[in-house]
């Protein structure tokens, strides 16, 4: 599948400060999360892929075309920036309409598109209010509305959940997932791991201006050979299962916990194959639940940053 975004040996420096350091990556279609702590280079990457900054070295292409100095590409891109900045004297509807008009729509078309977008982000009732009177959550949503009003192929969202209350957060996550399900692509950045985890399993991990890892969260986890992989198995006969697990050298350690056995393995593929076979045979009783508690992004991120 063609990459939505591609960076080829991209570096960006501001004077003597390096924002991004020799980054080569491809972002596949669908939802991709860009993760990293504050100051990791996420914003620089977002600014490069939205053509606000020019790479000091290397090339950035979006939807197959170079983005810097290529304004026609913005017909296909919607961008929701991180900063909480607006023309506060305008109403939400006026603001979104004015921005959509810059996409070439007539006044009537733009108003219709803006209304649709505001409705999509649950702001239809507040469309006529001045943005200056919006709450933080509403301001985030009106920013989303201007990004998606022209129905772009690629939505780029920089920290879209910042400052939202839990309900608005859930709504926005649902909205992003819906957008992804409709066959469009989303690149979303955040420094909060569980936010990204709740939207997608496809991630890019950034730290200190470098890409630490890219791809499926599970694949990434598997790549970290030096860190044992933890598997939580809830079963009827945990002791018998433990004995069976220990018969091979792919298990590093085990411990028991309330009707479950927690296994640490250095070779997750082999271990999961064995576990599947054991569960299918039914020889050692029923296996109720298999989860990998450290498969979540927090753990992966911590491993990668430490290594």
């Amino acid at each position: 599948m063609a990459a939505i975004i591609a960076a080829d040996h991209v570096s960006k420096w501001y004077g003597q400060v390096i924002g991004l350091n020799d980054v080569t990556l491809t972002v596949p279609p669908g939802i991709t999360g860009l993760l990293g702590p504050n100051g990791a280079g996420k914003s620089t990457f977002m600014k490069l892929v939205t053509g606000q900054l020019k790479a000091s070295k290397g090339a950035v292409t979006v939807l197959g075309e170079p983005i810097w100095g290529n304004p026609s590409l913005y017909f296909r891109i919607g961008f929701c920036p991180e900063q909480d900045a607006f023309y506060d004297r305008m109403t939400g509807l006026e603001w979104v309409t004015a921005l959509v008009r810059l996409n070439g729509a007539t006044e009537a078309e733009a108003a219709a598109m803006a209304n649709r977008a505001l409705d999509y982000v649950d702001l239809a009732d507040a469309a006529g209010k001045k943005i200056g009177a919006y709450s933080k959550g509403m301001r985030q949503r009106v920013k989303m509305a201007q990004a998606l009003a022209h129905d772009p192929e690629l939505l780029i969202l920089d920290e879209p959940l910042g400052g939202m209350d839990p309900i608005a957060r859930r709504k926005t996550i649902r909205l992003i997932k819906e957008w992804g399900r409709s066959g469009k692509s989303v690149l979303v950045s955040s420094h909060i791991l569980h936010e990204i985890e709740s939207m997608t399993s496809n991630i890019l991990l950034v730290n200190q201006g470098r890409i630490l890892a890219e791809g499926n969260i599970h694949q990434i986890r598997d790549l970290i050979d030096e860190h044992p992989h933890t598997v939580y198995v809830k079963a009827d006969q945990t002791r018998a299962l433990a004995r069976a697990f220990l018969s091979e050298d792919d298990v590093l350690s085990m411990k028991f916990e309330d009707g479950a056995v927690i296994v640490q393995t250095a070779r997750p593929d082999t271990f999961y194959a064995r576990l599947t076979a054991l569960a299918a045979s039914g020889e050692l009783g029923a296996i109720h639940e298999v989860t990998s508690p450290d498969d979540n992004l927090q753990a992966v991120f911590e491993y990668l940053v430490k290594s």
Binding site: T50, G51, Q52, F75, P81, Q83, L102, N103, G104
Partner: peptide
């Protein structure tokens, strides 16, 4: 900080 909205439009 509103320049972003204008510079990320197809103009």
């Amino acid at each position: 900080k509103t320049i972003t909205y204008l510079f990320t439009r197809p103009i």
